[in-house]
Write a protein that binds this DNA or RNA. Structure first.
Lengths: 255, 255
DNA sequence: CGAATCCTTGAACACCTTCAACAGGGGTGG
DNA sequence: CCACCCCTGTTGAAGGTGTTCAAGGATTCG
């Protein structure tokens, strides 16, 4: 009932990068079709991962980065005492594995949250390609830089914001990302568990649950298990930013 | 008493990268001297920044990345409500401004914590250079990747750790970084204020202060204002990792 | 020396966590 | 198809950790 190769072969259908609806999200190098052609040639399409399967685990040798094509996944690291720390959630068009470029092994694991298909981009091939393609080179740097920027935003979230603000920011962020991908920004499914959300936001599961309930009571959202409807995105955005007792004067060293 | 050009010109002395004690820390491209020579040619040495001066501010146009040569600085962003969020502290041999590569402007500011001299590396020149130097290209990617990795570690710290663990981790991290640079790993000066530390670690100033006191009472450190002596690095490392009530079972979804 | 800033210490409070119990799916096997 | 179980998610009450508010000391610099 679950032999690997036979069940779903649809995924092996070759989809060229230039035909991919996400091509401007993952590695939008110069508009040149020739470049895309070359890039396309090194990309491997693998069968979809089922919920719970790993793309790679912590310590796996680093060989490729991955672009999510459909579905979603989470990346997580381990604390010294063996507990998970969710680093991020990845939607279609986003790259995974960038934190491994520096080393030999993956410092974090990537696990499918639902049935998920990805493009595998062997990194040595990508580097070779980039050697002769300055635009790709520069694009890569920009992508990594963007990742750093996103991490900094998350740092601000974890460092300063209250529980409400964190969940609001999380929902607003997801909303914006879905929108960019052509999905609804008001209505979507959370593929991750409450546990994962809490872990990611630095909150207890119970807190997340209570917040969802409260947000619903306040008319901000409608939650039905994993189904989310944002009823007041503006108010959510507001909450994600200001308010709360944490918004005090810290390190205001002035000009 | 503070005209710019006249007071300290020592800093304008040309120090070639190959003679710099930090060259293996900041951009250690292939061992080739020729490469270093080329790199060296595009680097600008500017007069040292005094405590409180900015290398760049939020929103400044992005033109260069910087390598700290001596001294130290902090980078910080602004939350929506106008408060500072310290992103990181930067010691000699570390690069600053990498999160701006993706955009036109600096998303965070960099401010000297003490008298600090840096190498300014114009980014367009660096990219041009990299176009014809694959090793430099790859090195850049690795450096950015490493930055991402460090941010992920910080995320784990802010997401999961108690106040004790945070401060312990902070001290141990500083210790290791000083060691790499040839300074003492047991004894050093904190160039940043308690305020900055608290801000960085997501704690109130008062908490940081209390923790320093407690660590001292427990014989882990000796603190005298900004002067730090680590008396028991092993125990500190231990605290940085495990212990505390936060070390509970979260998101243990198993294999 | 005085002002300003940074650091420290104390006490009360608030937020979130922890512990505990229960409800609601979703799957399996009878 | 229903019963059962397991897991995820929810809700309640108590407790703790860190914050906030407040005041006093230390240090720096004009």
């Amino acid at each position: 009932m679950s032999t690997d190769k036979n069940v779903i072969n649809i995924s092996n259908i070759r989809i060229a990068c230039k035909d991919c609806s996400l091509f401007q999200l993952c590695l939008p190098i110069g508009v040149g079709e020739a470049d895309l052609e070359l890039l396309d040639r090194i990309i491997k399409h693998r069968r979809p991962f089922r919920r719970g399967e790993h793309l790679f685990r912590i310590g796996d040798p680093f060989q490729a980065i991955y672009a999510v094509r459909a579905g979603s996944l989470k990346t997580y690291a381990m604390t010294e005492d063996g507990h998970e720390q969710v680093i991020g959630f990845h939607l279609p068009g986003e790259l995974v594995g960038l934190d491994a470029i520096n080393g030999e092994c993956h410092p974090c694991a990537a696990k499918a949250l639902e049935t998920t298909s990805v493009c595998e981009i062997p990194f040595d091939r990508l580097e070779e390609l980039a050697d002769h393609m300055p635009t790709l080179q520069r694009q890569l740097l920009r992508i990594l830089s963007k990742e750093i920027l996103q991490d900094h935003n998350l740092l601000m979230l974890l460092g300063k914001k209250s529980a409400d603000e964190r969940l609001a920011a999380f929902l607003v962020s997801l909303s914006a990302r879905f929108k960019r991908r052509g999905f609804s920004s008001r209505e979507f499914y959370l593929s991750m568990s409450r546990n994962d959300i809490g872990n990611y936001l630095g909150l207890a599961v119970e807190t997340v649950s209570r917040l969802f309930t409260r947000f619903q009571e306040e008319g901000l959202v409608t939650v039905q298990r994993k189904h989310i409807l944002l009823r007041d995105i503006d108010e959510l955005s507001l909450r994600a930013g200001v308010s709360g007792p944490m918004a005090s004067s810290k390190s205001v060293n002035g000009v």
